[in-house]
Simulated scan of single mutants.
Amino acid sequence: MIKYKKLIGMKVLDDGNKETIGEVYDAILSKRLDSLTSIAIKNGKLIKEKNILPLNKIISFKKDIIMANSNSIIKFEDLEDEEYILAEKIKFIDKVVYTENGECLGMVKDLLFDFNDGKLIGYIITEGLLEDISRGRSFIPNIGNIKINDDSLIFGENIKDIISKNKDYYKKLLELVQ
């Protein structure tokens, strides 16, 4: 598992010669916004090239380095606009989270992905600084039927039951990805 904010800035190295291919600057999501399909990378050269590395072409993923074959890189300009959705464009971070009845559950602080298959596992939520200090951050699983607006995410009313029934599991999950 990996947090979105941890993914950003990771180095991508060529598996063959161990040279730097670039650095991750965004995640590319599926059209349904439920999984990570590729990572967007830019090189460190004077004239920056933006490229895409499909998730299924990553050879290995370590603590702070991604290993790939440089032949797997796709030039960003070779893709059609409808082939990718940058997470940055959706701006998940700092969106307010509501239930369908308008109850505020907090604000998105990070996304959690399963790096093996790219699935968006869920959203790491803050309810404010004091709550974060006293109880820690909350977690809302990505269970579908989510409405994404410009400034908010809206979940079905059943999300509160799911969160309360699985609260201990979610706390342990968040501890694993610290």
Rank of each mutant, 00 (worst) to 15 (best):
Ile41Tyr: 01
Leu29Val: 10
Lys18Asn: 06
Tyr25Cys: 08
Ile39Cys: 01
Asp26Arg: 06
Ile28Asn: 01
Glu19Cys: 02
Thr37Asn: 09
Thr37Tyr: 06
Glu19Asp: 07
Lys18Leu: 07
Lys45His: 11
Lys31Leu: 15
Thr37Ala: 08
Ile47Phe: 14
Lys50Ile: 12
Glu23Phe: 13
Gly22Lys: 01
Ser30Leu: 09
Ile28Arg: 01
Ile41Asp: 00
Lys42Asn: 04
Asn43Cys: 08
Ile39Gly: 00
Leu33Met: 10
Asp26Glu: 10
Lys45Asp: 14
Leu46Met: 15
Val24Gln: 03
Ile52Arg: 05
Ala27Asn: 11
Lys45Trp: 11
Leu33Gln: 09
Ala40Trp: 01
Leu33His: 09
Gly44Asp: 14
Thr37Met: 06
Ile28Gln: 01
Ile28Pro: 00
Lys45Gly: 15
Lys42Pro: 00
Arg32Lys: 14
Arg32Val: 08
Leu36Ile: 07
Ile28Met: 06
Lys31Thr: 13
Ala40Val: 04
Glu23Val: 13
Arg32Asp: 15
Asp26Gln: 06
Glu23Arg: 14
Lys42Cys: 05
Asn51Tyr: 07
Ile41Trp: 00
Glu23Met: 12
Tyr25Ile: 13
Gly44Lys: 14
Ile21Trp: 01
Ala27Glu: 09
Ser38Thr: 06
Asp26Ile: 08
Glu49Trp: 06
Asn17Cys: 02
Thr20Gln: 11
Lys42Gly: 09
Gly16Pro: 01
Val24Met: 02
Asn17Glu: 07
Ser35Cys: 11
Asn17Arg: 04
Ala27Val: 15
Asp34Thr: 13
Tyr25Ala: 04
Gly16Phe: 08
Ser30Trp: 05
Leu46Arg: 13
Lys42Met: 06
Lys50Gln: 10
Lys45Ser: 15
Gly44Asn: 14
Gly16Ile: 09
Ile28Gly: 01
Ser35Ala: 14
Gly16Ser: 11
Tyr25Asn: 11
Asp26Gly: 11
Gly22Thr: 04
Lys45Glu: 15
Asn17Gln: 03
Ala40Lys: 05
Lys48Val: 10
Gly22Trp: 02
Lys45Ala: 15
Asn17Phe: 09
Arg32Ala: 12
Arg32Gln: 14
Ser38Ile: 02
Glu19Pro: 00
Ile28Ser: 00
